[in-house]
Write a protein that binds this DNA or RNA. Structure first.
Lengths: 243, 243
DNA sequence: GAGTGGTCTAGACCACCCC
DNA sequence: GGGTGGTCTAGACCACTCT
């Protein structure tokens, strides 16, 4: 996480973490793959198994790797059932678990507006793709999303690609562009529905909505997605835990 | 966390975790105290230092214990500078860091309404204390909180006690009632300001506010506080991270 | 210098998965 | 049965804090 600070002393397992992360960045092991066994990595890096173990433990705690006893250690993927909901914090109040369906409104190429350019660390006016979509639960639209990704990392993205893919957006990014989201920061506000969004979500203009701004990061803490979600929260809540 | 499931096999370090937690529940070590050294605990529990270490590692990851190299391991406390802001997720948009001041409106004894009784696992109509307060940043009120705690655990709580204490509410609970908050779950919605709250927050009636419902837990995952916060989020955001 | 937590190693054995 | 991760141990040494 703090690869910028350079402590006077860096433990071995931390260096191993960096080496593993570099292999992930380089695509040596892709999401869903098994990485080599602890023993293999130990001899590769010329350290003891315990040291590799500690490095993997930390990466597993960050949800970058997934350990499965008796099988091996895998690169986390949004393609799996368990992970597909990892970043979805909107839940029904009645406790029922339900997956939303998405309906894409448009996919366009744009110049990055200031807000997303800054957060994605792009120069002003850099090319982005803008995805607009609606998430519905039981055919009732509840979330309107506007998603910005740098054009350079998502060359060739278009409406047909997105629409023909079944699965979560992050699983799509992973499969088609090799970009795995591993972490995100969200800033949440309450806002009034604009007339456009009110129509899409079937509420009256000015209705209070949850505005969820997200920046998502891939390996090496590189920001690669900005999005703004507007959520109708009458029967849904944004759920989070802290300790 | 999952003390309810009983796996066929329970590792030693997990049993040590439970023993340590029991000492925390029993008050053998209080928030701010140093617990015995790893070596001492190892001989007390008749296990190796490495096993105690793993147990403490996990409790430290849950922010229940705090390790300080060269000094010892301490029980986490909301009384310290670092921890006082642990559960405060509202931040200024301009990035400036500022601590809110609180103004108490009332402290009353009530019968628990259904919503908090259920979440605090109390019988309907059980006694609670209800604290109403306003959080201000630079003298501008931004959050209105209504806080419910079971009367049985907070015997004798009254307005004067609360008002005369300087420090965060959780540090007050810790110091005066020996109850340490270690974890919380929040459910967030966007709502319209009622006329009462609108006056307190100096916004117009119907203005969109962030409604943050929280249940906080003490050792052993016992729920001991329910609160509802209503936040004016024009210049503030609720910030969270996920991975 | 003494005491604490932090790292690293090596080896034994256990639980789990799959062939 | 063989391979994987998971636990537990014992010991050496390092980094940090305080006296």
């Amino acid at each position: 996480m703090n690869s910028l600070v350079s402590p006077s002393y860096r433990p071995l397992y931390d260096q191993i973490k960096i080496l593993i992360t570099q292999s992930l960045i380089a695509g040596e092991w892709k999401p869903g793959d098994a990485i080599p066994s602890e023993m293999d990595l130990a001899s590769r890096y010329k350290v003891s198994q315990g040291t590799v173990r500690k490095a993997i433990d930390e990466l597993a705690a960050e949800n970058i790797l997934i350990r499965r006893q008796g099988k091996g250690t895998y690169v986390a993927s949004h393609t799996t059932e368990r992970s597909s909901t990892r970043f979805l914090r909107i839940n029904r109040d009645d406790g029922q678990i339900e997956y939303p369906t998405s309906q894409f409104i448009s996919v366009t190429r744009e110049k990055a507006p200031e807000i997303s350019a800054n957060l994605l660390e792009l120069r002003a006016g850099a090319g982005i793709y803008c995805i607009k979509r609606l998430l519905s639960y039981q055919d009732l639209p509840q979330v309107y999303d506007e998603i910005h990704v740098p054009a350079t990392y998502f060359k060739g993205l278009d409406e047909n690609m997105v629409k023909s893919y079944s699965g979560s957006l992050y699983s799509f990014f992973e499969t088609r562009f090799g970009i795995a989201m591993i972490r995100a920061e969200e800033h949440i506000k309450a806002v009034s529905a604009s007339s456009d969004v009110a129509k899409l979500l079937n509420v009256s203009e000015g209705y209070p909505l949850l505005q969820v701004d997200r920046v998502a990061f891939t390996y090496g803490d590189r920001p690669v997605e900005w999005r703004r979600g507007l959520c109708h929260t009458d029967q849904f809540s944004y759920v989070t835990e802290m300790s």
